[in-house]
Design a protein around this nucleic acid. Structure first.
Lengths: 328, 328
DNA sequence: CTGAAAGCGCTTACAG
DNA sequence: CTGAAAGCGCTTACAG
């Protein structure tokens, strides 16, 4: 494979200096004569020249790459957010590098190092884990953006997400209004702020009138299925189950189906996220709608207009709503 | 934000040359004395130094970035393949840049230029569209990898995917064996090789004994829903519908549900892909299983061991199987 | 309107 | 075992 043409090749072919070619490709065309423009353009086309982002990044000490770390690339909500971010970044000339932490702190730290190696314009952390390395980076630089899970206490950085407490609270109130008995919360890992806020909100919403059984659970269908199977082994009660995300809810649903239970007659399920496929494949699922496709624009704006100082870092709270279907 | 430390900072702090620091970070440690190693290590740690991939890429004339173009980032099969590729690339020290062509030839060409600008190690095209720019790139360089849709005739490049004709054929045979009447193919856009091969295989499998109604359709739930609604308006027949992918099948399913039709009693649906969520949310869908999570390893291997010449470019045909559930 | 030149952060062949 | 030096592909302040 021949190595790609460089700015020097174009300069040579069109008989100008590399400075002029560079001006052409950086859009400073009002400082070049029309004939020169045309000769550069045609030389570049003939050679199939595309400016090297690498050379450019090195010179400008800044890349056009944004790295997004996600806890689970196969989570449907995550995938929708990633699609949204990719699209919004493209609009401002940036590329998205996607990387999966698999909820593993060491992997996250390794990927943070990689992102730093790429001199990423910004690092978007969907569901960050609180590690020393993360704290150190948050201290040192101000291009970290937290999504979905607020930064751990002491870390000052922009955040994009919903008000998890308020959303959990709304679900709790709904349970009370409907008079649900046997309330259950299958919540996400307790050490993640977002997940514990959802739970706290839910408990506050339910209030003291009802006991709530609580189970901790990974944010996956498989984990939800396991918890659901355990819970529903006891068929003497009609449970009302609040799941920390839709993936867990899908798992509980499968467990219920396997036991030939009917929804909502035998068990009620409330999810969280309202993934895009729900309208198609889970038209039964009552859940909290989180606007996945609004994340990209919000993040792109934060990247485009970084705060003057870290202390001014902004927080974007997106609205949520309840999507009431049949399951609760 | 202070600019990140460079190799020179580390060299200065540890009192060695940048050459030695570079040797340390490129793993040539057997050519450095143990004391020097330790002093470089501690200096780097103190400064929080991570080598710049940009400087490195420029020097080595090759980046560690792989760009993958996908036709629709919200397609569940695409998302699973992307997760698989990201994971496999991480294993060989590469990063994945994801970009969405939205089945738009111009966007694809723009993204190809971007990929070239990034000096991508490889460009993975999931569902490529045949454009002059693509042909030109395929001529010029040999780092293109086609996934799912074979390169258009005349383009010589490695391919990873299933045998679409054989898979379509197997579905056609199945229809015949079961004696299905009123066969329908809701196939993907005809100008995509993968999609037309599936259709051709299906028609060949069905043979001449049965007529097959054919409809062209985008690979989305929405398009499937539209086609399904039109088709199922005629309730006098019991159709057996082969859908070009699961997304279309979900759409047809929704159309059937809205008409209070039962599956498979009133309409039979056969999908294609067997997305991971099917076991959970579409446990009724009979479909062709395409091993999404085997794509990543296959692609990573192609990248790691490029063919000696373009003419030796390899083709990796992954196995498919039929997942028989209730819908057909 | 245009060019010569410096320098961004690395790696490596060469010399010692 | 170690370092001086060249050079990868760009951009831009400066000079004309």
């Amino acid at each position: 494979m021949a190595k790609p043409p460089t700015i020097r090749d174009v300069a040579r072919l069109s008989g100008v200096s590399t400075a002029t070619v560079s001006r052409f490709f950086t859009g400073k065309t009002n400082a070049i004569s029309p004939e020169t423009i045309e000769s550069v353009r045609s030389a570049a086309e003939k050679l199939g020249y595309t400016p090297s982002e690498i050379g450019r990044s090195l010179r400008l000490a800044s890349s056009r790459v944004v790295v997004m770390l996600v806890p689970d690339a196969t989570n449907l909500f995550t995938a929708d957010v990633a699609a949204s971010v990719e699209n919004a970044l493209k609009g401002i000339g940036l590329s998205l590098v996607l990387a999966n932490t698999a909820e593993n702190a060491e992997k996250q730290d390794g990927l943070l190092a990689d992102a730093q190696g790429l001199r990423a314009r910004a690092i978007v952390l969907q569901g960050a884990m609180d590690t020393p390395r993360l704290r150190e980076m948050a201290e040192r630089q101000s291009n970290l953006i937290f999504v979905n899970r607020r930064p751990a206490p002491g870390i000052i950085a922009p955040y994009v997400g919903i008000d998890n407490f308020a959303a959990g609270f709304a679900v709790g109130r709904y349970f009370i209004e409907k008079g649900y008995e046997n309330c259950v919360a299958i919540h996400g890992p307790r050490h993640y702020p977002g997940s514990s806020r959802r739970l706290e909100g839910f408990l506050a919403g339910v209030g003291e009138m009802r006991q709530v059984q609580q189970f901790e659970c990974a944010f996956t269908m498989e984990a939800g299925y396991r918890q659901g199977s355990l819970l529903l082994a006891d068929r003497s009660r009609r449970y009302a189950v609040f799941c920390a995300n839709d993936m867990i809810a899908y798992g509980v649903y499968r467990a219920a189906m396997e036991k030939n239970m009917r929804i909502p007659d035998d068990v009620m399920i409330f999810g969280f996220d309202d993934n895009r496929v729900n309208d198609w494949l889970a038209p039964w699922l009552t859940t909290v709608k989180v606007p996945a496709f609004d994340f990209g624009p919000a993040i792109a704006e934060l990247i485009n207009e970084p705060p003057a100082t870290k202390e001014h870092s902004r927080t974007v709270i997106l609205p949520f709503s309840l999507t009431i279907r049949q399951s609760a």
